[in-house]
Design a protein around this nucleic acid. Structure first.
Length: 617
RNA sequence: GGUCCCGUAGCUCAGCUGGAUAGAGCAACAGAUUUCUAAUCUGUGGGUCUCAGGUUCGAAUCCUGACGGGAUCACCA
């Protein structure tokens, strides 16, 4: 609902009436009046000074008076420097309140705007999910919800990297040292179970490598490479080569990869079994986070895609072939480099596969937009990918967006798996819920509820703390995640906002007990709205704009910050103003209506962020 | 080195499509509950918006250049 444009229109007419100039609407700057001044909205007059050749204060006086005389919605005004502060009439606010109460908080546009595919999560099967994945998942999920709210059909997807040397390492380790153990037999979550074997492989490999470093063979190699001062440095750099050329278990793992590619029956069986364990584990984490996918792509299916695109590109002259048979694209005229599309042995590289996958998705769903939620270390990759797709003249090429986000770091620095500083997703989820349980018990507010009801509320609170902590930061910024702060339930946090909602539900329950009807308009008795009420209404009526803006800028943090501001203002209102004991029945009803609509908006906003609201806490 | 991103209070972050005296939370200190859920509210202290130029009536915001931090520039993914 757009409430300010009638005011802007009136202002435009007032200017025309008094100065005979028709100012374009988009040149009229209107803001919410800052708290330290009196008024609801402020029009900036500076741009008009030169136009009218009068002192700015006088212009303000003339136009303000005109708006009051019109008797539309303006009740009063004041001019401070070049700012015309306008106070809207109580009847205006009464209308706004009833409009907001009677309509859904988000107007879902009736006409469909098209289909959008959102990719997020996209894990590897050799490691459990960590904090970085959580940020990714929250962003992608939230983006999906935001696009739905803006009238799009959304397809949520992930692409799982289920093949390659990494999973073969886990497979080899399990086969060699696993003794037939399963996640069930060891009571370990599947993704962790497989991840542990990956780690075990690395450990065994390191042992083997260390041992080899003492050998004559190794020492000879080291002394032949005179540019290295110390052994440690040399062997660090030699590690990959050792793995590929000399390592026994490296060789065995690579043999597995070849077997896999040759479709060897037993290797494929093992691969399927272990990946299934991982997927079961991932599903648990996704479930805990409250997210799901409409479809999943697997790299084992898609990694060969894109070769056809290479042929098409060659035919149309977008790509070119080197004498050795490799295929390239030259993007130097677009400020990028040359990029390989196909290796000289004819196999695909990462980008080939992405081209094929994009085409496949378009074929599958005919989407007009695709949003890739991937960390900012791949900014360049996506820049190249999108440019290539454009040059291939794909019909979807204009609807591609890389939702890039910054790395999640700890107060101590980057997470490093080698140093064991990676924050595991499952761990942090359970930690934050435990903390919520502790503090909820201390409070005692819900102690009368059943255990399952309590657990449910506690889960919502804990997850809200974690999720809000992450989603409130603008995506493109890297963020510092302090586990200590993330379990905070006070101040600028998810639970703070939930608490505002819970207070509102409590009010509404009591109002229902008193049989107060909130569905009727008050046409008889005009009430005076105080500053708290006006502020709440102003924010609530901006919600649709906020949601649109979040979609346009691909930024859920806008909604998070909006929610916080609204909750904060509600808490203040709640503290300063009597609601159920208001001075008369009309005021009571209007305050309840405002509270209800604030609650509805908070809940809708949190839903867009993937955060649930409890009714009590 | 080329390209891209970031730099705001002790810490974590808003504000960035230019508008009034730059805001929150945390941390510190002082207060508020016979009243609708105190996971709340009020107050105090805390700033060269990295720096220097430029555009403008007006710059944290736009432009240029430094400085600092990060990412990326594979026949890896």
């Amino acid at each position: 609902m757009d409430f300010t444009s009638p005011l802007v229109k009136d202002f435009q007419l007032a200017v025309n009436d008094r100065f005979n100039v028709m100012i374009p609407i988009d040149q009229i700057i209107i803001n919410e009046t800052r708290k330290e001044f009196e008024g609801d909205f402020t029009i900036v007059l500076f741009p008009f000074v030169k136009l009218f050749g009068k002192p700015i204060e006088e212009i303000g006086q003339i136009l303000g008076q005109k708006l009051v005389d019109d008797q539309h919605f303006v009740q009063g005004f004041n001019v401070v420097k070049g700012f015309l502060n306008i106070t809207l009439s109580d009847s205006f606010w009464l209308d706004v309140m009833d409009e907001l109460t009677e309509n859904p908080v988000i107007e879902k546009s009736k006409l469909k705007k098209g289909k959008v595919l959102v990719e997020f999560a996209s894990p590897n099967t050799n490691k459990p999910l960590h904090l970085g994945h959580i940020r990714n998942i929250l962003l992608g999920w939230s983006m999906s919800k935001i696009y739905e709210a803006n009238g799009y059909d959304v397809i949520k997807t992930q692409v799982i990297n289920d093949r390659g040397i990494a999973i073969c390492k886990s497979m080899y380790a399990w086969k060699s040292w696993g003794n037939g153990a399963t996640p069930e037999s060891l009571q370990v979550k599947g993704d962790h179970f497989v991840g542990d074997f990956y780690v075990l492989f690395e450990k065994k490999f390191q042992e083997e490598y260390k041992l080899w470093q003492q050998s004559n063979d190794a020492q000879k190699l080291f002394s032949q490479n005179g540019q290295f001062k110390d052994q440690e440095e040399f062997f660090k750099g030699y590690k990959n080569q050792y793995f590929n050329e000399k390592s026994k278990i490296g060789n065995d793992a690579r043999k597995m990869l070849l077997d896999w590619e040759a479709n060897d029956e037993s290797t494929r069986q093992l691969w399927m079994k272990m990946n299934q364990w991982v997927y079961d584990g991932f599903d648990t984490t996704y479930h805990d986070l409250g997210v799901s996918f409409d479809t999943t792509y697997y790299e084992s299916d898609t990694y060969l895609l894109g070769k056809k695109a290479v042929k098409t590109g060659l035919d149309s002259g977008v790509f070119f072939k080197e004498p050795d048979g490799s295929v390239w694209i030259d993007l130097t005229d677009a400020g990028m480099d040359k990029k390989i599309m196909l290796r000289s042995d004819g196999t695909s590289v990462y980008i080939t596969q992405d081209i094929g996958t994009a085409q496949q998705r378009y074929e599958d769903f005919q989407v007009s937009k695709m949003i890739y939620t991937v960390g900012d270390e791949q900014d360049y990759h996506f820049k190249v990918l999108f440019e290539v797709l454009k040059r291939l003249q794909e019909p979807f090429a204009d609807g591609l967006y890389h939702l890039s986000y910054g790395m999640v770091e700890l107060p101590t620095g980057k997470m490093k798996s080698r140093e064991g500083t990676v924050v595991d997703a499952d761990d942090i989820i359970s930690e934050v819920i435990q903390e919520a349980a502790l503090l909820t018990a201390e409070r005692g507010e819900i102690s009368h509820l059943s255990e399952t009801e309590k657990a449910e509320i506690i889960r919502k609170i804990g997850l809200a703390a974690l999720k809000f902590f992450i989603i409130k930061v603008a995506p493109k910024k890297k963020m510092i995640f302090d586990p200590k702060d993330s379990v905070d339930l006070q101040g600028q946090t998810g639970p703070y906002i939930q608490n505002a909602y819970v207070r509102i539900q409590s009010l509404l329950r009591k109002a229902a007990e008193q049989n107060i009807n909130l569905n009727q308009r008050n046409d008889q008795n005009l009430i005076t709205f105080n500053a708290y009420e006006r502020s709440l209404l102003k924010q609530v009526m901006q919600f649709s704009d906020i949601v649109r803006n979040a979609a346009e800028t691909y930024d859920p943090s806008i909604i998070a910050n909006f929610s916080y501001q609204l909750a904060k203002d509600f808490h203040r209102f709640y503290h300063e103003v009597r609601i159920l004991n208001a001075e008369n029945a009309d005021v009571k009803v209007s305050r309840l209506k405002i509270s209800k609509v604030v609650g509805d908006v908070l809940k809708a906003a949190f839903d867009l962020l993937g955060i649930e609201m409890p009714d009590r806490m």
